[in-house]
Amino acid sequence: MSLAIETRDLVKTYKTRSGQTHVVDRLNLRVEPGEIFGFLGPNGAGKTTTIKILLGIIYQTSGQAFVLGKEAGDIQVHRQISYLPEKPYYYEHMTGLEIMQFYASLFGIKDTEHCKRLLNRVNLGNDMNRPISQYSKGMQQRVGLAQSLLNDPQLLFLDEPTGGLDPIAHIEIRDLILQFRDEGKTVFISSHELSDVERICDRVAIINKGEVVAQGALETLLVGGRIEVTANGCPAELADRMRDGHNVVSLNQGRLIVDMPDDKNPNDVVTAVQSAGGEIVSVIPRRKRLEDLFLEAVSGDDKAKGRQTISMLGSGGNDAVANGQAAPAKTQDTKGDNP
């Protein structure tokens, strides 16, 4: 059975005034049939560009891209795939049902009952005759998912499917995606919602500046753990000192949180805090999260290539968040991800 998605040294460059910009740089992806694959990366990493190449909307500069065993853009493949873009827009004068009928007609499907069934499946049965302009963001996203099921696709491309949704809509969409896998569909998700990805994806690829910096099964990539040390009454100089090494450090009104790999000795941090006059609140071991992997992979890659480290996730309300890690530039599991 052929792979659902495969790219081989995929490159996309754009000409700019200062020369050429590599948006996608020798990207190698392998997505197995029937899995939920998370495609992650910071803004501008090249995720949407890659999806557009896979859909045949734009063309690669070099390399190869295959979808369901055929070259990306093959019109026959489009009968077996579907796409939900980030922040989808629909013709606002149409109702939910009319939108479905429109997209169905592009496949030559004239079955209105089929459209209604799908709208019912995404809980829009009672709203299908209302104009899209009256739909909430979550409802529009659900219409997007319903239209992406019209052709009973083997492969779904979902670009930020839960972006900007409230918690209930989040859970609903997440459950729907899990149902797709149960039905044997392959789901390719590009998302910034790392907690969602961690809950539903089988494997992930993290890209940074167009290159894969980590790829593999989550269970393999998330081995190891972290230790979180929390202390009160800490000065800013201490936080700066803690940023050396492999730690993620945040400081908010004297409350210091140091997040470190579990192979490091937390006593060093505890001693440093006490010497600086701070008070230890807790030392909690925890398992490694996708967020940690993301930070390690992206900032490690940036450091290895001498780029400025990005400020990233989970920093709400903090005075400062920094990751001083020097993680390996690339992380791969051994499940044959490297073609």
Binding site: I57, I75, H78, P85
Partner: peptide, 13 residues
């Protein structure tokens, strides 16, 4: 408005 992406990802040339 990105409507073109949804349309061109269907079997539409």
């Amino acid at each position: 408005r990105r409507t073109i992406y949804t349309i061109l990802s269907k079997p539409v040339l």
